[in-house]
Structure formats: C-alpha cells, structure tokens
Amino acid sequence: MPIKIEHMYHTYQPGTPFKSDALEDIDFTIEDGDLLALIGHTGSGKSTLAQHLNGLLTPTAGRVLVDGQDINRKGADRKALRQRVGLLFQYAEYQLFEETVYKDIAFGPRNQGLTGDALDARVRSAFMKVHLPADALEKSPFELSGGQMRRVALAGVVAMEPEVLVLDEPIAGLDPKGRDELTDIIHELHRGGVTIVLISHNMDDVARIATRVAVLEKGRLAMLGTPREIFSRGDELEAMGLDVPQTVQLCRRLRAGGMDLPDCLTAEELCDAICAAKGGTRRGNA
C-alpha cells in the first residue's frame, strides 16, 4: 500500500498575518516495505508531513494518495484510513488513560468493532510485540516507567494492525537502553511486514535501521536516498544543522588526513575498513 505524495503544500493560518508555509511542493512516494527515516531540524515540517499521511491535516494544495486513491476526496473513509496508517505522536505516554495496560491497548481495536476472543487475541499479540514484562498487562499504565508507558502507547497503535506505522520521535527522552530496546522493536515490526515512517534525531539509529532517508529543510524535501547516499553528503547535512552519525564524521576526518576509506555507516564497517587500510599500509612499507 504505497503512499504517494503529489506536489503537496501546507500553510498554517492562511489569510492571516500569522500565515506560515510549513510544507512546499513535497513530492515522493513511501513504498511498501520502506523503513523511511524522516529527518530535519525542529520546524522543518516533519511532524506536519506525518500528520498528512493519515489525513489528520488536509493539504493546502496537492494530494496524498493511498493505494492510488486521494485520501482527502469527498466521501473518503477516514476511519478506515486511520486503521491502515497508524500514527504514534511525540511523547505518546501522555496519551494513556485507561485503568489497565490491557484496556488501553484494547481501546482502538474495540472501536474498530472487535469483541470477545478476536479482541483478546489482538491485544495480546500487540502486547507481545513491544516486549513488556508479562505481568504488565493487568497493571495500571501509570505504574510503569516512562519508556514502558511509551511502549504501551505503541502497542495501542500496533493493535490496529496498520499497514503503515508513522512514529514521531519515538525514542526522544529515553535512556540509552530504552532507546536500543525501542529501536529493536521498530526494526522487528518492520521485518514483520509493516511499512515504517520514523521521525528521528538519532542519526546512529537511522544509519543502522533505515532503508531510505528523507531530509526536510524549511518545508521542502531536500534529499531522498539510502542512508549511505544521504550520509555521504555530510557537509550539506551539517549546513542544515543536522548531525551525521559519529562513525561517518570520523570516516570523513580520516580521509581528510590522507587515509583511503570507503563510506562507512556503522562502527563495525569502519573498523573493518580501518584495519584493511592499516594492513595495506604495513604491507606497503615492508
């Protein structure tokens, strides 16, 4: 179920002195099986774009097509759309409200009309996917840690069994272990067949798990490509105020110092490349 964004514009408060163009001429397709990382500094339009993907916002101009159908056409079934494209907001743990984790996760599928065993199976399956301790299911979500609460919120969206999952800074504010755990969960959901759109400031994670990266700058799509393609343009990213993974920064520094290295995204790749280059030097000297 590709999501095709066609020459899409979004203006906040049009026709007022506070008018601001949040998105301009966005034109690209989120393909089935993508794990698309959406990066850009604060105010670049990432969250605005995310909210267009399931029709929470309506474009000022242009179209968003899901399965070839304009999601904002007259008579479009918004409810069905939001079941197919799930959205996890920033700091989603603040949106939990039920007495137990079970009930919180069940809220969405119950609204979809599920009851009885079908509902129960759905809740348990979603709960399994977010790796929480088994006894958490009957606890109040407010007894859990912040990172665990965020995973409950994610389970609530996963329980809708969306084909596309849009995650707005899911790891912000978590401790390093919490970041790794959630990143692994996202990676697993993706391998399980869910298309993922991931908004993140953590470039090391983006380099590790994304299949493609879209860079937004001042509301425009500045770059689109594989992590390797995008992070090889480190100078441009830094000029936009973005980070590149530390391994990529080191790799560039070493090249500037005269070492012959290929583009490396992960520490393991860079280690291999450095050892190969050093080995070569040693042989050359001998």
């Binding site: 272990k177 530390q246 080191l250 280690c271 050093k278």
Partner: peptide, 23 residues
C-alpha cells in the same frame, strides 16, 4: 554501564573494536 541501562560513547565502542583487532 550496559548492565545499568547505559552505554559508552560511539567512539569508545569503536575504540574497543579496533583494540580487539590489535590496533
């Protein structure tokens, strides 16, 4: 550190890999 849900900076992790390879 990892046992306490923490981590090491990326360059420290890389340093460990390089040392393991004899650099």
């Amino acid at each position: 550190l990892r046992a306490m849900r923490l981590d090491v900076p990326p360059m420290v992790a890389l340093g460990d890999l390089l040392r393991a390879r004899g650099l």
